[in-house]
Design a protein around this nucleic acid. Sequence first.
DNA 1: TACCAGGGCCTTT
DNA 2: AAAGGCCATGGT
Length: 289
Amino acid sequence: MTQKTAAIHTLPAVSVYAPDFDPAAVFENGQCFRWEQRPDGVWTGIAHGRRLHLRKEGDALLFLNAAPNEVHTLWRGYFDLDRDYAAIRAAFARDTALARAVAFAPGLRLLRQDPWEALCSFILSQNNNIPRIKGIIDRLCAAFGTPLADGGFAFPSPQALADLSVADLAPVRCGFRAAYVLDAARKAASGEIDLGALTDLPLDDARAALQTIRGVGPKVADCALLFGCGRLDCFPVDVWVRRILAAYYPDGFPEALRPLGGIAQQFLFHYERCRAARTKTAPAGGTNG
DNA sequence: TACCAGGGCCTTT
DNA sequence: AAAGGCCATGGT
């Protein structure tokens, strides 16, 4: 038990060439809730039941505590490292608003998260703010997730939650969302909804299946499909995206970009939120770019 | 179609 | 220190 930190330092880092991977943009754009940067600059998080330590060094992404085999079988997919983001950015660059958003954070990427974790996380996100969502998910994992060797916890499976009551979730302090999470867990655990099948189902069928879950409407369903099932044509519309669409796309989002609409939405969402944070204390101007 | 549902972060006073 | 706005919404 005293070897847990030693193991991190004795594993040789696995280096992957990923010039267009910006950890801050990837982890802090609201698509995931279990990653954080330590004071020493290392990014750490838990996904697929594994704890990962990560650092960007120049054009290299350094996996600090993962065996090469794990990097290629698990993390390569999770971080979407095989997708040609240069081509995607080039396609987006022809659109005025998207060009700005891409220039602002060219290293942004979509994670390919676990379907259940994505669904559950975005149920918990509704009418909620990101710092609190993170706290709720931390408490949910600590209470019902499988413990990891380093003291962290895996995201609890649907089976781990399905037989619980709303009262059991009280320590999680997720409010009215508790009943929604439990309904989702029961439908996933029973097989009433096959989360694995959502990746290949016709989009409307996948949406309809998810929206039979209490507390899952169009926005949460599209988040689950985009972030958890790799459905890149899903375009979750929340209050921010609604503002973006009204401001930059009064005639609608370009049809040609719809197949990658989910990635586009992510660039726009990230840019707009960061811009709002910057201009909050400086209301003057705002039209530079 | 409004309004309501936990709760807490964050900004403003 | 206290108050109030604001949440990556959906149900009624």
